[in-house]
């Protein structure tokens, strides 16, 4: 049994140590607090939405300009906490997120552009940190697949509507029922045709 224990914050390591004896048999591999919480006590639940950090991230450090505040709020929503399970920098109270937030604030005050901040973070933590992946050969499928689905769907829609428009004019109810009967007969025949000889 081995643990991968990345302790970042003082408090959190204690949490890990405290919680270890409780369920030794189920300790698989844990990579951080998120998984610790989650692994032990949490979610038997397909819970919608949760935050593994039960403490709020509330920052009162001020930025000099309301425009910067708006950019800052937007940016910390777009970057992922590198160490957490699945939280952005705004939600995560891990020390690494705290450091990165203060770094972003510093860069904003120094007049860095969003692209520069993004570059700075990617150089250190990799593309993993971007919740909005950049468009390159590794993400073509990601960005284009939904467009392909919609395009394909639209093509099918047009084809079906065209075919249905050309098909026989809608009949009355009684006629339809006869048609249906006939069709059911055909379906039965077709079933037999389909069966392997």
């Amino acid at each position: 049994m081995s643990f991968v224990m990345g302790c970042a914050p003082r408090r959190k390591c204690q949490v890990i140590e405290q919680r270890l004896p409780l369920a030794p048999a189920r300790a698989g591999r844990f990579t951080g607090l998120g998984r610790m919480l989650v692994g032990f006590a949490l979610l038997g639940v397909f819970a919608i939405v949760s935050l593994p950090s039960p403490a709020a991230v509330i920052e009162t450090e001020a930025l000099s300009d309301p425009a910067l505040v708006a950019r800052y709020r937007h940016l910390i929503d777009e970057y992922r906490c590198p160490k957490c399970q699945n939280q952005n920098l705004a939600e995560s109270d891990s020390p690494i997120s705290k450091d990165l937030r203060s770094e972003i604030r510093r860069m904003l005050e120094e007049g860095a552009s969003d692209a520069e901040i993004s570059e700075f973070l990617v150089a250190r933590y990799g593309e993993f940190i971007l919740y909005r992946p950049a468009f390159h050969s590794g993400t073509y499928v990601l960005w284009l697949a939904p467009l392909a689905f919609v395009a394909l769907g639209a093509l099918i829609l047009v084809a079906v509507v065209k075919r249905r428009r050309r098909s026989q004019a809608p009949g009355l109810q009684a006629e339809e029922r006869e048609q249906l009967q006939a069709l059911l007969g055909r379906a039965a025949q077709a079933d037999q045709l389909d069966k392997p000889q």
Partner: peptide
């Protein structure tokens, strides 16, 4: 549904194909 599906499983696919460790999040 297809878009949500691709976005959800893409980190796995990208890892399997060696396209890098990628996160797909709310902006996408």
């Amino acid at each position: 549904c297809g878009a949500v599906f691709v976005g959800t499983l893409y980190p796995l696919l990208a890892d399997a194909m060696n396209w890098g460790k990628i996160s797909v999040g709310p902006p996408y």
